[in-house]
């Protein structure tokens, strides 16, 4: 009867050995290759730091002007432009300009990264059913595992800092971009594609003149999802220990500040990208 009530698990010693073995081998791996891997991500870090410095060095009126210009280009709506200006003004008023610049640079860099990795993968998936059947379960795993789980090995390898934060955001945010790029391209009207073929378009012309433009509303839905997920960025950016301390030592009223600042930036990105679908 014991067989049915107790799961025949491995013995305690076996489990401990297994744990030790995994721990040891990962430690060994990170000791051996940690520096190389860090060096590999160094350009990314430099870019991120550079971009953040640039934003922080930009005089605030110019920054607001540029952001409003971008909002106008993306949405063609004067209401959204005014909303953008007001929300950034409020952020500054509450003394969170510097922090917001880090957040914005993190969002911008991670968006560029997500698009430059996600778009090609999405395109590949749309062209091959086999690629789709391989990538889909990987995306499922990426979306179901909580971010701190895959953050642990990354932090062990690279330490706590901007790059692990960035990696966490990318892993968290890239699945919707890949999925919606794939879906968007697969949903392109087959008669329009046939027309492209009938006029002698080559595969590249087909992709850039027909498939991607027509998939754009869906791709933007993915970007929108992504930028709404950027609060994960803060987990990494604010250095996890700081963050824990901050939660522990401050009351809800001071929590309201960063949260609302986050909300403003998010609202802005959301309105501007949503316009496209």
């Amino acid at each position: 009867m014991e067989f049915f009530t107790e799961f025949p698990a491995l013995g305690r010693r076996d489990l401990r050995d297994l744990r030790l073995a995994i721990d040891q081998s990962f430690k060994g791996f990170s000791r051996e290759y940690g520096e190389q891997i860090e060096a590999l991500f160094d350009p990314l870090l430099q870019f991120l730091i550079g971009f953040e410095r640039l934003l922080q060095a930009t005089p605030w009126p110019i920054f607001i002007l540029v952001v409003c210009g971008l909002a106008w280009l993306a949405s063609r709506s004067i209401r959204i432009v005014i909303g953008t200006a007001v929300s950034f003004y409020l952020i500054g008023l509450f003394g969170m300009w510097e922090d917001t610049m880090s957040t914005v640079s993190m969002i911008a860099v991670s968006t560029i990264l997500c698009l430059s990795v996600g778009l090609p993968i999405g395109v590949l998936m749309s062209r091959s059913d086999r690629a789709q059947s391989i990538v889909t379960p990987i995306l499922d795993v990426m979306q179901t595992i909580p971010s701190f789980v895959y953050l642990i090995p990354v932090v062990m390898l690279l330490g706590i800092g901007k790059v692990p934060g960035l990696i966490a955001v990318v892993i968290y945010a890239i699945p919707p971009i890949i999925r919606l790029t794939n879906l968007g391209i697969r949903l392109v009207d087959s008669e329009v594609l046939e027309a492209a073929d009938a006029f002698g378009a080559n595969p590249w012309q087909r992709l850039t003149q027909v498939q991607i433009p027509l998939a754009l509303p869906n791709i933007f839905a993915g970007v929108n999802q992504k930028s709404n997920h950027h609060d994960v960025a803060r987990d990494g950016r604010d250095r996890i220990d700081d963050w824990c301390q901050w939660i522990g030592t401050t009351g809800p009223e001071s929590g309201l500040q960063p949260v609302s600042c986050n909300g403003f930036v998010k609202w802005d990105g959301d309105r501007c990208t949503r316009h496209h679908f």
Binding site: D189, E191, V192, E194, A195, Q209, V210, P213, L214, L216
Partner: peptide, 9 residues
């Protein structure tokens, strides 16, 4: 084409 198949963008 029957359904025109124009590029909407």
């Amino acid at each position: 084409f029957q359904k025109f198949a124009l590029l909407p963008h």
